[in-house]
């Protein structure tokens, strides 16, 4: 196993340049397997100004506790370094973020130094192509406070149609009571980009989104998850698992509804298109 430690987060602009090069034949040879490299950032204090910007855009209260999705923001340069590393099996542009699961063991305070490790694992077939997981581990000292598993899909070869979603199983998110309506502004992608560093062109402008096959700029999936977790912030215990499946992209601007229902051991939530009721995100919290 190889280790790469980033001394400081690289600028996202350069990373997307690298990502763009990755779409061309200049990318070099792509390997068949995921790299076993672990990308890490040494323990570092959280910048309160940046955190407050994230809290504003995702509507979290700035209590000094790091929002669950914030580790993803802190680790974003590592995600990009991993996904654009030489020989990575897939070009980063074109990967679809289909699932994000956060397992938090305790809340971290802004005064704590957070160390981060990112790696890729579990390359496997999906009904529409192949999928793999990006694991993000956040530690205070040696203590693992948050582990996130982001699943990415590369549409295309290597698919296995027998793996199509089993519609009969699990929660029917469409039946959750819709309790709030959120009006998402046309510049939401740019606003979240400025606080998360994720300047993927599909979120920035209609024109750049069109270049990648979207009719309009789309909201970041992790914004949607962060906003949903902010809405149920006072229901989250110290330790929990927050799983979310990203369904259809939110085309900006948009009006969406937020649905939620409590269970004995947590709750289920969903973000849906206000007009059509089609799902953007289905998620669940499991306490403990």
């Amino acid at each position: 196993m190889a280790n790469v430690e980033l001394k400081r987060p690289p600028g996202a602009g350069g990373l997307y340049l690298k990502a763009a090069i990755g779409m061309t034949p200049l990318a070099g040879n792509r390997k068949k397997e995921l790299p076993d490299t672990v990308f890490s950032l040494a323990p570092k204090a959280v910048d309160v100004d940046k955190l407050s910007g994230f809290c504003r855009v995702t509507e979290h209260t700035l209590t000094g506790t790091l929002p669950p999705v914030y580790f993803n923001v802190l680790a974003f340069p590592l995600h990009m370094a991993l996904l654009t590393s030489n020989g990575f099996p897939f070009p980063v542009i074109g990967l679809v973020h289909v699932q994000n699961k956060i397992e938090q063991s305790r809340p971290a305070d802004v005064s704590e130094e957070i160390g981060l490790q990112v790696s890729a694992t579990n390359l496997r077939p999906h009904a529409k192509g192949r999928q793999f997981d990006v694991i993000t581990e956040a530690r205070v000292g040696d203590e693992l406070v948050s582990k996130a598993t982001s699943t990415y899909l590369r549409i295309g070869g290597g698919g296995d149609k027998s793996l199509a979603d089993d519609k009969s199983a699990g929660v029917d998110y469409s039946t959750l009571p819709q309790v709030s309506e959120w009006r998402l502004a046309g510049d939401l992608g740019r606003r979240y980009a400025s606080v998360s560093g994720d300047r993927n062109p599909i979120h920035m402008h209609d024109l750049t989104a069109k270049a990648f096959g979207f009719p309009k700029a789309i909201a970041h999936g992790m914004w949607t998850k962060a906003r949903a977790l902010a809405a149920i912030d006072n229901k989250l215990p110290d330790a929990f698992t927050a799983d979310a499946a990203f369904k259809r992209p939110i085309l900006l601007p948009s009006k969406v509804t937020f649905g939620v229902a409590e269970r004995a051991d947590g709750l289920d939530f969903t973000v849906r298109n206000a007009k059509k009721g089609t799902p953007h995100l289905d998620g669940s919290i499991v306490n403990g």
């Binding site: 309160v48 100004d49 910007g53 809290c55 209260t61 700035l62 209590t63 000094g64």
Partner: peptide, 17 residues
């Protein structure tokens, strides 16, 4: 100073928590 970006609601919530 250090609370420049904290709102009334942010600070009050932190005190109550």
């Amino acid at each position: 100073g250090p609370y420049s970006h904290a709102s009334n609601q942010d600070m009050f919530t932190a005190a109550v928590d």
